[in-house]
């Protein structure tokens, strides 16, 4: 039961981990992208559209489907869809100096609207009775497990029974940490987010860094949406089922103190907190809703503690949310 609880927490946590790793990269370049929920949503629906088309092309017969293509097509679609969202955000905030908060919120609204539109359209095409699309065949490729995991008992279930996107999320988070902390690119990126004028004076191309960090960050966040549909929801898309996971990912950034490695633990902790209500007996519906607040309560507590400690390493990048005009020195 405990093992099951932990596995469930991990499954719930992975989309958050993708979302917050992406958002951390973006924020390190000094841009607060509140469009992440929309970006993740677009990532999810792009993947759904991709796999829907591929499944149809194969005549809805799993025997005809190439496992490699079944995975790579939705993956690429999700990456492209989410990066485009990042690109729109970048163009507005970096090039046109639009307000970051407003742009981000607008993109979230846009992304969710777009996702629901495409989702509803697909449902219409299938003429399904249920308000959802089932891509269970593609999903079975995504949630393929290591063959020997089951033989290893609890150890196998805890560490080896997850889908590949879970491991990829952890790998990306660890790589992102290393890049940020131990490479010249990471140093330059952090300088851009902390003090773009200084970075500019040091000969760093501020605009380029902002664009790349935001687009790559958005692409990573998009994978979170894809993982949600393909693994968590077993390939079943229904409008608005994604819920507030995008906002939770942004809260997780603060919880993780802008460190992707801490975000790994944080994501699973958030997953556990979200899930706890199902494992505690005798909860009424209203108490269950209270339990769902826990991740945010924890985030607020983290915010209070870090602002009291006054350590700059644990604070957001100094020019987070501020537009950079070179002329305004």
């Amino acid at each position: 039961m405990i093992i099951q609880f932990i596995c469930r927490a991990i499954l719930l946590g992975v989309p958050l981990l993708y979302g917050s790793t992406g958002e951390i990269l973006t924020e390190k370049s000094g841009h607060l992208n509140l469009g992440i929920p929309g970006t993740m949503y677009v990532g999810a629906i792009s993947g759904v559209v991709g796999s829907f088309l591929y499944e149809n092309a194969c005549g809805n017969d799993i025997a005809n489907m190439n496992p490699f293509l079944a995975v790579i097509i939705p993956l690429v679609c999700a990456l492209v869809g989410a990066s485009l969202m990042g690109l729109i955000y970048c163009f507005l905030t970096v090039t046109l100096h639009a307000n970051q908060n407003v742009t981000g919120l607008a993109l979230t609204t846009l992304g969710i609207g777009l996702g629901n539109f495409l989702g509803a359209s697909l449902i219409n095409i299938t003429k399904s009775e249920l308000p959802s699309i089932a891509l269970t065949k593609t999903s079975s490729f995504f949630s393929a497990k290591l063959p020997f995991a089951e033989k290893l008992g609890w150890f196998g279930e805890l560490f080896l029974s997850h889908d590949f996107l879970t491991y990829l999320a952890i790998v990306i988070a660890v790589v992102a940490t290393i890049v940020l902390k131990r490479t010249r690119v990471g140093l330059n990126l952090r300088a851009v987010g902390e003090n773009p004028a200084t970075a500019d004076a040091a000969g760093i191309n501020v605009t380029k860094y902002k664009y790349f960090a935001t687009c790559i960050g958005s692409a990573i966040a998009g994978l979170g949406g894809l993982q949600y549909v393909m693994s968590y929801a077993s390939g079943v898309w229904s409008n608005n089922a994604f819920g507030d996971r995008g906002w939770m990912a942004i809260a997780l950034v603060i919880f993780a103190l802008w460190n992707p490695s801490i975000a790994i633990i944080g994501a699973f902790a958030f997953g556990a907190l979200c899930n706890a209500n199902n494992y505690i007996q005798g909860l009424g519906t209203e108490t269950q809703e209270l339990f769902k607040m826990l991740p945010y309560v924890v985030t607020i507590i983290v915010l209070i503690i870090t602002s009291m400690r006054k350590k700059r390493e644990y604070q957001p990048p100094e020019s987070l949310g501020l537009p950079y005009f070179r002329e305004e020195r």
Binding site: L187, A191, A197, T198, G203, E318
Partner: peptide
């Protein structure tokens, strides 16, 4: 001064340089 406050002295000094391995 043109320095990044959250960085260490060494990080500030090498910032923007391209001298091979970091």
């Amino acid at each position: 001064f043109k320095l990044v406050d959250a960085f260490s002295a060494a990080e500030n000094i090498v910032l923007g340089l391209n001298e091979g391995k970091y």
